[in-house]
Computed example of a mutant assay.
Amino acid sequence: MDVATALTVMASTGFDPLDNVTALVPSSVRGVDYAASVTTGSLKGLRLGVLNGFFNRTASNETTPVNAAMDAMLAKLRSAGAVLVPINETIYNATAILSLYDTQRFEYREEIDAYLQRPSLHGSHPTTLTQLYRNSSGEFLVIPSQYEYVTTALISSTSNATYNAVRQGGQNLTLALQRTFTLNNLDAILYPEQKNLVVKLGAPSQAGRNGILAALTGVPVVTVPAGFSPVSADAPVGVPIGMEILGRPWTEEKLLQIAYQIEMLSKVRRTPLFARDVVEVKNYAAVPSVTPSRGNIPSAYPLGVL
């Protein structure tokens, strides 16, 4: 319901002359109150595609809990009357999609530069991505998994020789996705948010993510809880596992209805332990000033000098 309410507010903006994509929004989805209809859907009779290429069926401590949670969720959906359609097309491989069709490294610097140079931005601020990554000491801090991305983005652009081929691949993926919807007469497509459990806080990277499909094709997607891994010393309530529900363009209303019905069907949410604690809060006459310390940054997080 919170997501539906937030989307209602964001979608009420209408056409934004600073964002030409908003001109493509159909009149049928302008001014929609997503919160008003979120509880009106039904799972019975829905045709839901299952992207088998977005699962890692190799048994391990990291993948088995995800597969078990997803299989249990799919069984509940089938019992609720949904029709599950297996999708086995080889194009749906998140690792390959990320390496072959991702244009972010080429576009990121130019897009950020254009944003930072908007006349509507006021006050003192960097005007380029390079300046943004500089600080008074000439250093920047990036988590290890993003270090290569940032350093590549700072020297890449849409004029790179390989950009057009990568962009064309993404467009072909978008067409293939819509073809999959049409050929199978699907209402939505399901897959685990990640092939494996999320890593612990402080880990240098997160592998196995599947969110790249929606990001590259520009279609709507919503994530719902699918289950938890077994309880352990490091995860006293288990590690949460998510499922993505992906739809055709401009079907946000339907996706939110499906997500609501799945949450009501599964009811797998668990309150984290920290949320059950009671914390005594001091009364302050003024907001205290906090200066972050950089002394405890692990060595795995590199400091690069531009």
Rank of each mutant, 00 (worst) to 15 (best):
Y108R: 13
R276H: 05
R47M: 07
E62R: 00
A161P: 01
E253L: 15
G218L: 09
D277I: 06
K267M: 15
T151P: 04
T127R: 15
V268F: 07
L216D: 01
A203Y: 08
R109M: 11
V25D: 09
L74D: 03
A300Q: 14
V287C: 09
T63P: 01
A69H: 07
L46A: 04
Y147Q: 10
T217M: 00
P204H: 15
G169W: 04
N164V: 10
G49A: 03
E252G: 05
T95K: 09
N56K: 09
T128V: 02
S60A: 08
D2F: 04
G295M: 06
A6H: 07
A165Q: 07
R134Y: 05
A68V: 12
I262W: 03
T103A: 02
R30M: 10
Y133C: 08
V305R: 14
A153D: 02
S205W: 14
S299Y: 12
V25F: 08
L255H: 07
L77S: 04
L154R: 04
S299C: 06
G211E: 08
Q117D: 05
V278T: 14
L256I: 13
N296M: 05
T5P: 04
A203W: 07
G202A: 07
G218Q: 07
N196W: 06
A235L: 01
M73Q: 13
E252H: 12
V38P: 00
L256Y: 08
A203S: 15
T291C: 08
R47H: 15
P272E: 02
V224M: 07
R57S: 15
T151E: 07
A300W: 15
L18E: 15
K282F: 11
A286D: 11
A96D: 11
T162E: 09
P225L: 03
A259L: 04
A96P: 05
V239L: 00
T182C: 05
T162A: 14
D33M: 04
G138T: 02
V21C: 10
A226M: 05
G202S: 05
G208Y: 02
I258V: 10
V268D: 06
P144V: 14
P17V: 15
E253V: 10
T217Q: 00
N185F: 09
A114F: 08
Q104F: 12
V166W: 02
A259I: 04
V281C: 08
N93M: 03
A214S: 15
S145M: 11
I245W: 01
S299E: 09
V198G: 10
V219M: 02
N283E: 13
V38K: 00
V25A: 14
